[in-house]
Computed example of a mutant assay.
Amino acid sequence: MPLWCHASPAAAGAAHSEPALPLAGGNARVSPEVSAEQDEEGEGDGRRWSSLVPELLADILRRVDADAEKWPKRRDVAVCACVCRRWREVTIALVRPPLHCGRVTLLSSLKQPGPRDAPLQCFIKRNKKKSTFHLYLSLTQALIDEGKFLLAAHRNKCGFHMEYIISIRGDLSHGSHVGKIKSNFTRTKFTICDLQPQYEGSKVPSSSCRPRLASKQIKPLASTGNVETGKVSYEYNLLKSRGPRRIRCSIRCPIEEDTEIDPRKAKKPSTPGSLVLYNKLPQWHEHLQCWCLNFHGRVMVASVKNFQLIAPAGAGGPWGIQDDDAVILQFGKIEDDVFTMDYRQPLSAFQAFAICLSSFGSKLVCE
């Protein structure tokens, strides 16, 4: 997924048709020389931007990236990647992953580890009638704002089982699914599956296993497979004697740091390792007569769904987690259908969203 799916196609198309590209934060325009013959043949728009000198092109995109600190200005970077193949390759090489820059820019950032120093603040909007959930990146320090859309999910009931389909589009259209999370019979154990494109030359699923498309064949590189990337389990608590929910997550996360955002250009693929996370147990407050947990102002409503995930002592070393009390993922309720979601390294936005989805729905054997 090299590009950010919500960079406006109209804006990308405009970059092809307009004679010059406005630079973010200024009025300067750069338009390479194109011969009249090429322009008359209709090839000027296609070659105009790809014929820039490599050093000049890299400098232009570097300035656009440096000027766009956060969304919505980051949209300029994504639009630049939509101009042509050459611009896309340079943009992918320049944009740093969230682990090092703390920003989500391209689609690939959604499945890369979050920032190391401070968590990315997001929020989830739930629609009970449609059984849909939308994840947004917070644009301000407020608990909820307009937000930048990241992911969406739809809940399906398959008998007593529960399944959440995760998509990169808000309308959850076919072909935009990037993963899913499914539960067991008692809805206490969930499996996170990542929908990844298979490598070139891999065996294509048989016609009986893959969906049929009207008069269209699925190419080998477009075929997909479910890769299990984590499990979430909730402890049984039938007699309600253990207090609030107890959560255990086993997530496969990359151990080796890789600054290359394009996996095809990475010198050494990162090795995934299994990281176990537990929820931080709340303390009983005698005066308030309730279980309390410090969410540092990010949660406003008491709910059994609220939780904080931390790594056991000494278990976070390979991932650079030095503080045993460091919260890796925080999820809590702020309104009836709005929840905050703050995540950091080594979890990605996709993994954090999937874990939070498992918290929704009734669990009669847990509370």
Rank of each mutant, 00 (worst) to 15 (best):
R252A: 04
L57Y: 07
L21N: 09
L329D: 08
T229C: 15
I192T: 06
V30I: 14
F353I: 12
E89N: 14
F190I: 13
L195P: 02
L239N: 10
I321H: 03
T105L: 05
D67P: 01
R298E: 03
G46K: 11
A152Q: 01
R126I: 03
R252P: 00
L21D: 04
D323G: 03
L106Y: 00
P220S: 12
W87G: 03
Q330W: 03
R75W: 02
H287M: 09
A20P: 02
E43I: 10
L288A: 07
K203I: 15
C249R: 01
S250N: 15
P272A: 06
H16C: 11
S274Y: 05
A10P: 02
L106G: 00
R86L: 13
R245Y: 10
K73M: 09
G317W: 03
A7I: 08
K128W: 11
A81I: 06
G314I: 04
A12C: 15
V178H: 00
K280P: 01
I165Q: 06
K267H: 04
L120R: 05
S250H: 14
V178T: 02
E228W: 09
A14K: 13
P19Y: 07
S250Q: 14
S348Q: 04
R96K: 04
F350M: 09
R103C: 02
I144P: 00
E146W: 10
A12Q: 09
A68S: 10
A10G: 12
I261V: 06
D194I: 01
S183W: 10
R155C: 07
W87S: 01
P254E: 03
P205N: 12
R210T: 15
P113Q: 11
R74E: 07
E40T: 08
L3V: 05
A28N: 00
E235S: 12
I255V: 11
D171I: 10
P72C: 12
K305A: 14
G201W: 12
E257A: 04
P205E: 07
P119F: 05
M1V: 01
K268H: 06
E18L: 12
D342S: 11
S202H: 13
Q196D: 09
L281M: 09
I92G: 00
T91F: 04
K268S: 10
R74D: 14
G201H: 12
P97T: 12
P269H: 06
L275T: 00
V79M: 06
M300A: 11
V276H: 07
C80L: 11
C356T: 03
A311F: 05
R48S: 10
V95R: 04
K268P: 03
W291Q: 08
